[in-house]
Each structure stands twice: as structure tokens, then as C-alpha cells.
């Protein structure tokens, strides 16, 4: 399952970010988002727009194409 399979308002736990672009992964790591992090989807922008996710009180906007590469499981 990947992050884009989760609906707005849903929660999930990240299990793999290996396929994500290196720079994006580095930034997500900086923001405390990595394997094992629990995140919830706050908003999904229309027309293939970005996802706003929240992890430990920190909100982050990422592209849908990147969210598709983040593997998650139900938490």
C-alpha cells in the first residue's frame, strides 16, 4: 500500500521510502518523516496537486507523485 491509497483524514505508518527522490527523502528526513513514522493525511489538493501530511505535529506538503512512492501500512 502506498500513501496515496489513504484518504484525507486517514492515518498510516511509513514502511519504506527507498524509491523516493534522494533530495526529497533527505528533506523528509530533516522534518522527521522516515520509516516508522506515523503520519496522517490532512489535505489532498485537487487536479493531482500536493498532499498535506502531518507527523508529530509537523505539517508538510509533498507532491502526489512522491507520495505514491512512499510505502505505508495501517497503523
Amino acid at each position: 500500500m502506498v500513501l496515496t491509497d489513504i484518504k484525507a483524514g486517514g492515518k498510516a505508518k511509513i514502511i519504506n521510502t527507498e524509491h523516493v527522490n534522494v533530495l526529497v527523502r533527505r528533506r523528509l528526513l530533516d522534518l522527521g518523516i522516515m520509516e516508522g513514522t506515523e503520519i496522517s493525511i490532512k489535505r489532498i489538493l485537487p487536479f493531482g496537486g500536493p498532499f498535506a501530511v502531518e507527523a508529530d505535529g509537523q505539517w508538510v506538503g509533498i507532491r502526489r507523485s512522491e507520495a505514491k512512492l512512499i510505502q505505508v501500512c495501517h497503523s
Binding site: 527522490n21 533530495l23 526529497v24 528533506r27 523528509l28 522534518l31 500536493p50 498535506a52 509537523q58 505539517w59 508538510v60 506538503g61 509533498i62 507532491r63 512522491e66
Partner: peptide
């Protein structure tokens, strides 16, 4: 060269 976008959304 491949675009990237990650943004912090402050309260």
C-alpha cells in the same frame, strides 16, 4: 534536472 518540492506548513 528533476524538480523537487517539499514544504513545511507552519501553524
Amino acid at each position: 534536472e528533476g524538480s523537487m518540492f517539499v514544504i513545511e506548513l507552519p501553524p
